[in-house]
């Protein structure tokens, strides 16, 4: 899995200006929504971005979908800079990268039949005969677990789970290489979530598609993702293969996040690391490590002053950005947690 790199994100920053004045617009500050992040997604691989609201995970998704221009940095798909694409290449990009959003009640146009919703990407970007389009739609509907007989219905005639299947079908029909999944199951009922998660995993194998999964639920990330990047205040603080991350989280924020997650059984007692305070404002982020004001393990000036970069821990492809793991420091005891 993930032998060939499909998507490469290099040092991407996205700052939104804060302006003042109506006529004479002045920039008085910047919101550092995404601040120097890098990651890769391999073919048929799922990368999950986890973090709390405001950490920049949705902005990252929007950058990859070409809905925002980055302030700095580059994003490469198959080695080509996606912001330099023009003409046919640009149109091809829309074929190759698709998205599924959180809320299937608002993401599907209520006035359009399911057949046309699903077919839209290939109607727009391909010259196909009606019969070909019809056949493709029916095959996709079967693949996402819907009855092709229902293709002439409208979205309101379907339940939440079925609508999400329609959204997945529409994203798949152009045979994309990457699908951005923005909280794909969190608007669904608990008994429906497993259906959609299993569907996404099945079509990933069938269509060899990669996923960028935006998610706040850690259990969902563990079930769906091959790799996980933990974000905090616009930065990636820890980045590792899923099993490695869950077996051996090292960043204090990751540890706190894991300890805050709800247990799946009443007998599971976790060490409670309750963080104090709230996420600082990205308009005025703290100096040094963005997590240091809440960090239970911070070490003086190293954390308050120096910006840590992602550093690889003993060649395990486990990256962490933390003063405790700064160069030249002895590696702290991690205390592997179950």
């Amino acid at each position: 899995m993930g032998t060939e790199i499909l998507l490469q994100v290099n040092n991407v920053k996205k700052y939104f200006p804060i302006t003042k004045g109506l006529l004479f617009v002045k920039t008085i500050g910047q919101v550092k929504a995404v601040d120097d992040i890098s990651f890769t997604i391999g073919e048929s691989e799922t990368l999950a971005l986890v973090g709390e609201s405001g950490c920049g995970k949705t902005t990252t998704a929007r950058l990859i979908l070409l809905l925002e221009q980055p302030t700095h940095g580059e994003i490469l798909l198959d080695g080509k800079d996606i912001y330099a694409l023009q003409g046919d290449d640009y149109r091809r990009y829309r074929d190759r990268v698709q998205a599924v959003f959180q809320d299937p009640w608002s993401s599907l146009n209520p006035r359009i039949q399911v057949r046309d919703i699903v077919a839209e990407p290939i109607i727009v970007n391909h010259k196909l005969s009606r019969q070909e389009i019809r056949d493709r739609v029916e095959k996709i509907l079967v693949d996402v677990g819907l009855d092709p007989v229902h293709a002439d219905r409208f979205p309101h005639e379907f339940s939440g789970g079925q609508r999400q299947r329609i959204a997945v079908g529409s994203a798949l029909i152009s045979n994309p290489q990457l699908i951005v999944l923005d909280e794909p199951v969190s608007a669904l009922d608990v008994s429906i979530r497993a259906q959609i998660m299993n569907l996404l995993r099945d079509v990933q194998k069938q269509y060899h598609v990669s996923y960028l999964l935006i998610v706040h639920d850690l259990a969902t990330a563990r079930y769906m993702a091959h790799k996980i990047a933990v974000m905090y205040l616009g930065k990636i603080v820890e980045y590792a293969k899923t099993e490695e991350l869950f077996n051996n989280p090292v960043h204090p924020y990751t540890k706190a996040l894991f300890s805050a997650a709800l247990p799946s059984h009443p007998d599971i007692q976790r060490e409670e690391i309750i963080l104090h305070g709230e996420v600082p404002s990205p308009i005025d982020p703290p100096t040094g490590c963005p997590f240091h004001p809440r960090c239970p393990m911070k070490i003086g000036t190293v954390c308050e002053k120096e910006i840590q970069t992602l550093r690889c821990k003993d060649n395990t492809e486990h990256w962490v950005s933390c003063g405790l793991y700064a160069e030249g420091r002895p590696e702290p005891e991690t205390g592997r947690q179950q």
Partner: peptide
Amino acid sequence: LISSVPRMEARVERLFSIPGQL
């Protein structure tokens, strides 16, 4: 329902999914 919820504490090979809808 308990078998269809993913767990954070352990790797789950495949979730049971309840067929049908509410």
